[in-house]
Design a protein around this nucleic acid. Structure first.
Length: 641
DNA sequence: GTAGGGTTAG
């Protein structure tokens, strides 16, 4: 081989040719300018023949002073492979070396990879006059549309002398991205022409605003549909928990002759995760295998989540381990799977080994520890998190920590977290407000709970439930009932609301009111019946309570008989107490508390012989040796040990 | 070299 190294032969069409040329020609060239020129040209060839990025990168890195063309080639290659961090660092190096992009064509990829930092490329674009290029103009606008402010995108859009459909589409998706429904609808109406992209953007936008019906109307009106349009509608259903409608749409899609792609399967797998049905999951997994659906990071991550949702952690981990490239989402999904199972050792091992933790990784671990009762560790992790440069806790971090404070009764910690949010300008969401109400209520600080409830701009059913439960525990029965009755338009009481109100009535002795509330419940659960038994029982109306049990359409559980037993003791109704105790011994044979309650009933009725008999039974059956959670009566209240 | 679809935390 005796090529001039600066001029690679035109026959370089494959990677093998390129490598051959590289080996025979470049390496024999002295380490000087000509060798660098050769490498420069080879990098450009890499792009043309689709050579692997690491190989191109090796060549590129051998050039001490790459020119604009090499930068352009390697930037485009990195961007196409999704190596956005590399694009950013390459661009920085380009600026350091004062290399000016020779053509506008690098900018679209560059701007896309720069993400929210694209504004710095914007000034360069203007300086070079490339903003007049329609692709560059579109890319700059798109960057502002996605990362904000969307008004900046709008200004550029208005300044455009000629607007292509692609430019209108950028504005359209920009408005949807920021939840600006009216502007998006207006833009769609004003568009001189629309294509399948415009229509699909409408379907996605409305789905994200939780309006799947409106999205479906656009979907049905589309003049034509691509596989992306079907995927948009499908994921719209799945993300709005309309799983069966999603599956029906999938059937329609297949019926319409549209071939599902990887993205379609991601949504179908997400349906399985949500259903948590192991058999359904297995059948979808084998369909994906049979059809030889090409795997990608999204699909593999969705599969991890699906197996985790069905409790198959081994299979989930297998997919995770075999993945070629994992995104932070893949790591987070695997960590979340362990955390949900309570295996925090496995979770934290992965977390520690994770290359780039994002806010969700931290939140997953923090909520994992919180939910497993290890609030101390969660708080410690929060400290570590805030010590990381560039890592900011968000509203999810705060709401899980605040809820944990509520569960543990840590009022001071809870107040401190509320203050932390204010100081760091973390905008409270409805979930955060609800967590605060729950925390203050659970800690007995009803005044603070009410203050939060009043100041929140929008309430949902949980906001009411948290405050009602707090009032119930505090004995403010009237207030709890009043709060339920004044629930805003569109917020309907749910099973939890009624449970809270019934408890409140029961504790406050509002027997009649409680019975009226019970009548409002459309389909009472066994827990609601237990509340009613408790309500009547405490009021001494034990025969009515017993009738409730006899007539209830669902099978009573221990809570129902527990309430009856408790009431029988207060009102010294030995025969009903015996009846309730019999049922409880059957339902909870290992629970010593029931025996204690019965013996207390005998004691309060001065039936000492029976008291002794129960004590003997306790010894014989060995229930007193049963460890773990058991109910023990102390000063008239039930305590969990 | 432009615009639309996908997975994770509460």
């Amino acid at each position: 081989m005796s090529h001039n190294p600066a001029q690679p032969p035109a026959r370089i069409k494959t990677l093998d040719h390129l490598k051959q040329f590289h080996a025979h020609s470049i390496r024999r060239t002295p380490l000087d300018g000509s060798r660098h020129r050769a490498a420069t040209l080879l990098v450009a060839h890499c792009e043309g023949i689709g050579a692997p990025l690491p190989y191109a990168r090796l060549l590129f890195d051998s050039i001490p002073h790459p020119d604009a063309r090499s930068f352009a080639s390697i930037l485009r290659m990195c961007s196409r492979s999704g190596a956005h961090d590399d694009v950013v660092s390459l661009f920085r190096r380009m600026s350091r070396l004062a290399v000016t992009p020779h053509a506008p064509s690098v900018f679209p990829v560059l701007i896309k990879s720069l993400g929210p930092a694209a504004a710095c490329a914007h000034s360069l674009v203007l300086k070079l006059g490339h903003h007049r290029d329609r692709f560059v103009g579109n890319a700059v606008m798109s960057s502002y549309a996605h990362h904000g402010p969307v008004e900046a995108a709008r200004r550029l859009f208005d300044e455009m002398p000629e607007k292509a459909v692609a430019d209108w589409n950028v504005m359209l998706s920009g408005y949807w991205k920021w939840g600006r429904k009216e502007e998006a609808l207006g833009t769609f109406d004003r568009m001189p022409e629309r294509n399948v992209v415009s229509w699909t953007a409408m379907v996605t936008g409305l789905s994200r605003l939780r309006e799947p019906e409106a999205a479906r109307r656009f979907f049905d009106s589309m003049p034509e549909r691509s596989v992306v349009s079907w995927n948009a509608m499908l994921s719209g259903y799945v993300q709005n928990d309309r799983l069966d409608e999603g599956l029906r749409l999938f059937d329609q899609m297949v019926g319409a002759g549209v071939r599902p792609n990887e993205t379609t399967w991601v949504s179908i797998v997400a349906v399985c995760s949500a259903k948590g049905d192991a058999r359904f999951a297995e059948s979808i997994a084998s369909t994906i295998m049979e059809r030889e659906v090409p795997m990608n990071c999204f699909l593999e991550t969705a599969l991890i989540d699906m197996y985790a949702g069905c409790g198959n952690l081994v299979k989930a981990r297998m997919i995770f381990d075999e993945m070629e490239d994992r995104s932070s989402v893949s790591w987070n999904a695997m960590i979340a799977a362990y955390a949900k199972e309570g295996d925090l050792n496995a979770a934290s091992e992965l977390f520690d080994g994770m290359p780039a933790k994002d806010v969700i990784s931290w939140n997953t671990m923090i909520s994992g520890y919180s939910q497993n009762g290890q609030f101390g560790v969660a708080l410690e992790l929060f400290g570590d998190m805030t010590a990381v440069k560039g890592m900011m806790p968000d509203e999810v971090t705060m709401s899980s920590l605040i809820s944990a404070c509520g569960r543990l009764g840590c009022l001071e910690h809870g107040r401190w977290l509320a203050q932390y949010m204010q100081e760091n300008q973390i905008k409270p969401t409805v979930s955060v407000y609800n967590a605060l109400i729950f925390m203050y209520s659970s800690c007995g600080s009803l005044e603070e709970a009410k203050r939060v409830f009043e100041e929140m701009p929008k309430r949902d059913v949980s906001s009411y439930n948290s405050l009602i439960s707090g009032l119930a525990a505090n004995g403010d029965g009237d207030e709890a009932v009043a709060l339920m009755r004044q629930m805003e338009e569109g917020i309907k009481p749910d099973a939890i609301t009624y449970l809270g109100v019934l408890t409140a009535c029961s504790h406050a002795g509002l027997t009649e009111e409680g019975c009226r509330v019970f009548e409002m419940i459309e389909s009472p659960t066994v827990d609601h019946y237990a509340c009613k038994v408790d309500l009547l029982g405490r009021a001494g109306r034990l025969d009515e309570a017993r009738k409730v049990i006899d007539d209830m359409p669902v099978r009573p559980h221990a809570g129902v008989y527990g309430a009856l037993l408790h009431a029988s003791r207060i009102h010294k109704r030995v025969e009903l107490g015996e009846l309730a105790a019999e049922e409880l011994f059957r339902l909870e044979p290992g629970d010593a508390g029931n025996y204690v309650l019965l013996s207390n009933i005998y004691a309060s009725a001065r039936k000492w012989g029976f008291v002794e008999k129960v004590r003997r039974v306790i010894r014989e059956r060995g229930v007193d040796k049963v460890s773990g959670r058991s109910r023990i009566e102390l000063d008239g209240k039930l305590h969990l040990q």
